[in-house]
Design a protein around this nucleic acid. Structure first.
Lengths: 127, 127
DNA sequence: CAGGTGGTTAACAAGGTCATTAATTATGAG
DNA sequence: CTCATAATTAATGACCTTGTTAACCACCTG
């Protein structure tokens, strides 16, 4: 039962109702390349789910699930407009990732070789 | 067959030998909290596998597998010293994550509310 | 060489992820 | 109201992940 946590427990007189909320962490959310692509798509403009799905070869339900995961971890917010649900990216959430990476930044930038490695990689990829 | 790619194909006269190499991407590697903890552990000093395992409640084989994954994606390098294998972090690899996050940084820092959110989160956690 | 220690591999189990298709819900348009 | 469209849910399947224990290999020490 990983990544789950009880967020609220509502107790009526006779029926304890336990409400689970996925504690989807951002790291896991961005681990999937499709989800990273979705984020890239909606970075500049809000899109409804179908517009997002048009950019991928997978089914709408699959996209729907990805978006659900991104929403659950706080990276996306949904705004309902009639039938359409428009997805907007909530980039502040990426600060968690940024902060984690940044604590190690000094270990690889001290030698000032990051640029060199980046260029090396670029050259390898475009070759 | 996701996350796999044929990296090299050696062909002898009679035996084509296909060598698979896991294309473990860094995002997936750091998605696991245990692996992030391992990285944190060996950030400052090289540790052998048993020393790493001592810090966790899981078995040595489990740690061994995590370290294998981290090695396969380039985040760790192993230096054998007699019986011991010392793990060293290779933080340059984190640049991939950093670069991906950074392309969106302007979206959440423009408003200069990142500090506010950070403090808010801190307060929420220590409460 | 024998035995202990560091570490990996093998076999397996439980649960999670990511996709599918079919059915369902909900909204807007004619 | 009826139909088309936007989107979710349900049921299912294949594969991946993460852990376990037991057995094994490799190296150092006495």
């Amino acid at each position: 039962m990983r990544n789950r946590s009880v967020s609220h427990i509502f107790v009526t007189e006779r029926f304890p109702i336990v409400c689970f909320m996925m504690r989807r962490d951002v790291f896991q959310a961005i681990a999937d390349p499709t989800r990273r692509d979705i984020i890239g798509l909606i970075a500049h403009r809000s899109l409804n789910l179908n517009a997002v799905a048009d950019n991928f070869d997978i089914s709408r339900p699959a996209i729907s699930k990805h978006i659900k995961i991104l929403t659950e971890c706080g990276l996306l917010t949904i705004k309902q407009q009639g039938r359409d649900r428009y997805c907007t990216a909530n980039f502040k959430k990426l600060n968690e990732v940024s902060a984690w990476v940044d604590q190690y930044r000094k270990f690889w930038t001290e030698k000032l070789d990051a640029l060199g490695d980046f260029l090396e990689k670029e050259a390898g990829e475009t070759k």
